[in-house]
Computed example of a mutant assay.
Amino acid sequence: MAQRPRQDQQQVTIVTGGSRGIGAATAVRLAREGHHIGIGYERAREAAEATAAAVRAEGGEALPVQLDTSDEAQVDAFFDAVQDTLGPVTGLVANAGITGPLGRFTETSTEVMRRVVDVNVTGTLLCLRRAAQAMSVRHGGTGGAIVSISSGAATLGSPGEYVHYAATKAAVDAMTVGLAKELGPDGVRVNSVQPGAVLTEMHAAMGDPDRAWKKAESIPLRRPGEPEEIAHAVAWLLSAEASFTTGAVLRVSGGI
């Protein structure tokens, strides 16, 4: 029988892409629930430090670490640093991801496509593998939970915007289903969340700062989401309340 994580164990959760947007909101939300947080970020050092300060204000410990999640050595060093500083890892929020510029598929460069695949697919796989090694009872861990941040694009396809990105998020959901089945007997739950249009800086980075509000007309709730609304779903999936939930792909998209 698979072992369930001890309820008295300190929760130590790694959040990649934790400096801004959904990642930052999730880090703070989890800190409110008693988690210590390892914050992975690529470039935004000041934003990562601000997230760390917000985590500490909620009573959690925080360790921001700069890394490229598509680099295996950097992922290993990040996990090692978190475990050495905060304690054994019990959770992962695989949130780091990029889109590249908005545009039609025929006009998307090979360089952009390769980088999006490297971060969104290879980077997520590397983080999930290291988390599984840290948490699996098969490898001496005490169990835990993984939540990957996917996207509604995984099923909508995002024609005319970023089909390559949508494909990588479909891959993330495939990882979720497969690893939930593989790691369930080892005490590790694996789920993903599919956000819709959310008010983050990612839209500006892809070339259209107002994109989230432009999408509002097609959303049944007639508005984009807030990062905190995604964070609530992630926090539930990591919590003991979701102890029988694994392999789920949870849509949090306002109905689209």
Rank of each mutant, 00 (worst) to 15 (best):
D84Q: 14
A31E: 10
P224G: 02
M206C: 11
V65A: 12
S70R: 14
R114Y: 00
H203C: 09
V193M: 07
G178I: 02
D173A: 10
M175N: 00
T99G: 11
G143C: 14
G100W: 07
G255W: 11
R211E: 11
T85S: 13
R104S: 14
T246M: 10
E46F: 02
R130Y: 07
S148R: 04
A145L: 08
G196Q: 05
H36A: 09
R189A: 06
C127Y: 05
Q9N: 11
M113I: 14
R43H: 15
T26F: 03
M135K: 00
L221F: 14
A171Q: 07
T142N: 15
L128H: 03
A180G: 01
V12H: 07
V119R: 12
T108V: 04
H35C: 15
A242P: 06
H164L: 08
D68G: 08
V188N: 02
A145D: 06
S192D: 01
R43Q: 15
E182V: 05
T16L: 04
A44V: 05
T51Q: 05
V163D: 07
P220L: 09
A27D: 04
K214A: 07
P64T: 02
T246I: 09
T69Q: 13
S109N: 11
Q3K: 15
A212W: 00
N95F: 01
L238Y: 06
T85F: 03
V12R: 10
A154I: 02
G184S: 08
A24G: 09
V12A: 03
R211I: 03
H232D: 15
I14S: 01
